Simulated assay, not measured.
Amino acid sequence: MGVKKYFKKEFQWSNFGLEYDIAPDFYLGCWQRNRSCVPLLCLRAILCAGNVAIVVASWALLANVLSSHGFWWIYLTHWGIVANALTATFAFAISLKVYFSGPIESTFGLPWYIKLYWFLFNASVPVAFMITLFYWTFISGAFDIPGLNVTLDVFVHGINSVMMVLLLISARHPTRLLHFHHTVGFGIFYLIFNIIYYYAGGLDPNGNVWVYPMLDWSNPGPTVLVVVGVAIGLIILHCVVVLIALCRNHFSRRFRKDRSFSVSG
């Protein structure tokens, strides 16, 4: 009965967009019992610094290994860590604004910067999971890159997801099933870039016509199947994120002794 009620409430056209009535849910931690923005502010400061550090370290170290800083931008992994850094930065900025300026008013809708953060959150968390799973399943060990920093490799393809999990399980704002298009949209945007890069004659650092061997547009049949599989995978991972958020809401509300539990967030 609860599941039916959840899906009935979740699958409403209004949930397709970025409208929400409770602005404090974007700067209060789900595990705190008070109304202070400081606990989440502190955590978000650490996550922001960590994600930005990963991007800077990757740019500084890996770009030299790739022989040109231009090659750094052709990889989905690097798009993903940039998205993570932007998400964590906006989260930190929202908490910082509340700390200095007071509660955010949402009578006439959420401010643009909260909506942008929400969109980035919806896109970056499942993509981070996909990058981690895809890399360690299909790519790790398949390439011999001289000078590759193993520690950086772990941070870029593993710790990236850990940081996004921390952002997810500490947040209080909802994660909607109908926001799957944010995640898929991110993937489509990279796909368009990948196709344009191929037909423009772009090469990888080793002179290959593909950025990833499984995305070889000179052999479009299997490549299209991979693209479809990744799209389905992103939708599944988005659903996993939603499920984690529901569990988070349930246990955090019990922790706060709040009996007004609603599965929709």
Rank of each mutant, 00 (worst) to 15 (best):
A85L: 03
A85D: 01
T87E: 05
T87I: 07
T89M: 10
T89C: 12
A93H: 04
I94T: 04
I94E: 02
I94S: 02
S95G: 15
V98F: 06
G102E: 00
E105V: 15
S106Y: 04
S106R: 06
G109E: 03
L110F: 11
L110S: 02
P111V: 06
P111M: 08
W112M: 11
W112D: 12
Y113D: 09
L116Y: 11
Y117K: 09
Y117F: 14
Y117A: 08
W118V: 05
W118G: 02
W118E: 06
F119Y: 12
F119D: 00
F121C: 01
N122V: 02
N122G: 06
N122H: 06
A123M: 09
S124V: 07
A128E: 01
F129I: 11
I131K: 06
L133M: 13
F134S: 13
W136L: 03
T137E: 10
F138C: 12
F138Y: 14
I139K: 03
S140N: 14
A142F: 13
I145G: 11
L148Y: 15
V150F: 15
D153L: 11
D153C: 13
V154M: 12
F155L: 15
V156L: 13
V156M: 13
N160E: 10
S161D: 09
S161I: 11
V162Y: 08
L168G: 04
L168Y: 00
S170Q: 06
S170H: 03
R176N: 03
R176Q: 09
R176F: 06
F180C: 10
H181E: 09
H181W: 13
H181P: 03
H181Y: 15
V184Y: 00
V184W: 01
G187E: 11
I188P: 00
L191K: 02
L191R: 02
I195D: 01
I196T: 07
Y197K: 02
Y198L: 07
Y199R: 05
Y199N: 05
Y199W: 10
G201M: 04
G201I: 04
L203Y: 11
D204I: 08
V209M: 13
W210E: 03
W210M: 04
P213V: 05
P213K: 09
L215R: 01
L215Q: 03
D216Q: 04
D216V: 06
